[in-house]
Design a protein around this nucleic acid. Structure first.
Length: 300
DNA sequence: CGGATTTGACCGGG
DNA sequence: CCCGGTCAAATCCG
């Protein structure tokens, strides 16, 4: 109730996050396409500005102490009548033990997938909440949510599924963005749109000829990998012992030219269609990032 | 003892 | 009704 401004504000933030992510992807595409630094400076400049606009807007919204102030998730009582998001749930209203809550599923959030040879430590606290045998899959699928779902309202979840036996291959699918502050390992951030962190290390005036430096301060090969010290992982599901530390870290930037098994797929559930954007598609048709913007601005 | 995991039940979409 | 996502009681573990 009474947080109409709050819920629309939350939506605005979500849209900005999406937009910023798209801009970030586009920036990565440009960087990756012309890794010799021969990209047109005009395009680079444009992407920089778009990215900066999104980040600044987010900063303004986050720093503005009006209304619900710092925590957007307080607004998430989703009471407004069916705001397209299919949050058909005012059933949690009572604290009485009801038979069971209603589950909201198929969220209309952006998702992205990663494949790796080991479960990924993405720097966030994950708590396993389920495991399911999946039809036609050799291995069960594990469900994780952010540990700070309740104390900070962080809605991020992920699914980790082993997809191969030899070589061992895991696929991790992320849903939603982290709004929590506590990072398990601040050096490793795979969520490209965590508003707290990314707005800090996005310095827009770095040289574009050396990509994957500003967005992946954690990457840079095995040199600065935490040397046998605080490797207290949150997801410690049967980590196979034979992992070269090179393969362990995955770039949050879209490094599509390097190893094929680190395949990243970004997708957004637009109009009820699970629309997947493969990296190679984006590479050769980056224009589709443009019309990803349009429907959002019109419909909502 | 408190937090994380396990695991079977529950829920709802297709 | 099947299947995948989620809940939550029981259990584990530091």
């Amino acid at each position: 109730m009474e947080n109409l401004g709050g819920s629309s504000r939350r939506k605005a933030i979500e849209e900005l996050l999406r937009g910023r992510d798209s801009a970030q992807q586009l920036k990565s595409v440009i960087n990756g396409t012309y890794d010799d630094g021969s990209a047109t400076p005009f395009a680079q400049q444009l992407v920089k500005e778009v990215l900066m606009s999104f980040t600044n807007s987010l900063l303004f919204l986050h720093n503005n102490p009006t209304s619900e102030s710092h925590h957007v998730f307080n607004v998430q009582v989703w009471d407004s009548p069916k705001s397209e998001d299919s949050q058909e749930s005012n059933c949690k209203s009572s604290t009485i033990k009801e038979p069971r809550g209603c589950y909201k599923r198929r969220r209309t959030e952006q998702t992205w997938e990663k494949e790796s040879e080991a479960p990924i430590d993405d720097g966030h606290h994950w708590r396993k909440y389920g495991q399911k045998e999946i039809l036609n899959a050799k291995f069960p699928r594990n469900y994780y949510r952010c540990t700070h779902k309740f104390d900070q309202g962080c809605q991020a979840t992920k699914q980790v599924q082993r997809v191969q036996e030899e070589p061992i291959l895991f696929k991790t699918t992320y849903y939603g963005h982290h709004t929590c502050k506590n990072l398990a390992n601040p050096d490793i951030i795979l969520d490209p749109m965590s508003p707290s962190s990314s707005s800090k290390f996005l310095s827009f005036d770095n040289s574009f000829s050396t990509p994957s430096k500003q967005e992946c301060p954690f990457l840079s090969s095995s040199n600065n990998f935490p040397s046998s010290s605080s490797v207290k992982r949150e997801c410690k599901e049967e980590v196979p012992p034979s992992i070269s530390s090179n393969d362990y870290l995955i770039s949050s930037d879209l490094t599509f030219d390097s190893s094929p098994r680190h395949h990243v797929t970004l997708s957004s559930t637009l109009d009820s269609e699970y629309k997947s954007v493969d990296i190679s598609d984006v590479l050769y048709d980056s224009a589709q990032l443009d019309f990803v913007f349009e429907p959002f601005l019109e419909i909502r």
